[in-house]
Amino acid sequence: MPVKFEVNGKRVEVEVEPRLTLADCLRHKLRLTGTHVGCEHGVCGACTVLVDGAAVRSCLMLAVQAEGAKVVTVEGLSRDEGLTPLQASFRKHHALQCGFCTPGMITTAHALLSEEPNCDADRVREVLSGNLCRCTGYISIVEAVLDARTAYRRRGGGNGA
């Protein structure tokens, strides 16, 4: 069946089977392969995207359920080749190694900081506990997110993406 929605500011229309997850639709129909699939059962968080501003696991959502929604993936967060302050903070703190969980970490942290630019370390840890990383041990990720808070305070919260 056909489904129409917006991805990273662009309107798209795709023909999908009802069983296709939003994650697979983004990756294989729309070729937005920045969204990763690590478990397909809603635990690892690598597939996290923003749907109407809220961070969701795209492996637990059907593509047909995105009808009319605004979807933002990791590719949609930074314009051109540059890094956003959050992405730059990840780089500075060495908050990624293999890079596989990174898109989910970035989208989740972006949603959190957009909603709660003053969150504390415990809140960051709680929110990121829904995203598995096997490389970093998380400490640098938490530091990177905390360090990026100032950039979100400056833009006065809200979901800019």
């Binding site: 990756r27 392969t33 699939v37 993936t73 590719e75 890094l83 992405q87 780089r91 500075k92 060495h94």
Partner: peptide, 21 residues
């Protein structure tokens, strides 16, 4: 030194095998 790899990983431009078609 900040990593060279990070630029593609952070923006969703890494290329893992399942990304290929």
């Amino acid at each position: 030194i900040e990593r060279l790899e990070d630029l593609r990983f952070l923006t969703g431009r890494g290329q893992y095998v399942d990304d290929l078609a």
